[in-house]
Amino acid sequence: MNKLNKKTKEVFNKIKISDSRSNEIMTEILDSKKKSFILKPIIISCFAIMICMIGIVYAEEIVSTFNTFRFKMNDKKGALDMYSDAIAEIDYDANIPEAERESLDKNGKYNNYYSYEDLEGLLKIKLLKSSYFGNNLLHQRTTKKVNNKIAAASFGIENFTNSNLNSQTNLPDDWKIEFFNMSFSFKTKFATEDIKENYSYSFFTGGDSQTEEYYIKNLKTSALLIFTNHSKHCIVKFDYDNISYFFDLSFFGNWDSDSTHFRVEEILETLSY
């Protein structure tokens, strides 16, 4: 045993790397760490720049990915399925009575009409406004409560342009009237499964309808535009800050298809808080 031990030690002691080669290897290992110290920040910087570039180039697509509003064209049914995942945070105890329809009060005035300021104050949320609605009031369409907490609600506002033309018998050749109707609806965390105030329904597109996706640059969000009646009627849907907006825009008079498209986009770009 001792002989084998001694022999093994003798022989294996001869198996070794030369000092110069071992120093070379050691230096290579130490340098590799230094190189990685230099390379790591460069690689991380390149990666960050790449992510930023992708973010800029595909900003619209990325934003629409995070949009709570979804839609799907169902070719077989000729329908457009739309739904929203948005859950709004509001003052759930806001003093807004449940109302199924608007009705006249004893003084002959409509109930449940609010100014933007009043409603924002009551609900503690911000709502999109447009100069095209002037100082008109928002009227309550529906409110649903669960355990006395607001679970869902819907409000609308509308306006005519050139409404004075309605009463004229001799209209000018280039007469144009626009009718704007905007409503917004929301669902809160108290909503139960049977409450679908934040739309989840199908829209039958019909024969001459044209569906487009439009990116509202001012709001950095995507909206769905459905033009019907030879582009003289347009429905717009989108979500913004967990509130679902719905526009119904009608154009009467001398409008052509291109000008209504341009007009819809122009109106959408005026929306802001």
């Binding site: 294996f12 070794k16 790397i17 071992s22 050691m26 130490l30």
Partner: peptide, 18 residues
């Protein structure tokens, strides 16, 4: 860290090599 590595390398590199 480098000093400890150099010490361990010098001590054991031939054993690992064998």
């Amino acid at each position: 860290m480098d000093d400890l590595f150099i010490e361990l390398f010098k001590k054991y590199h031939n054993d690992v090599y064998r």
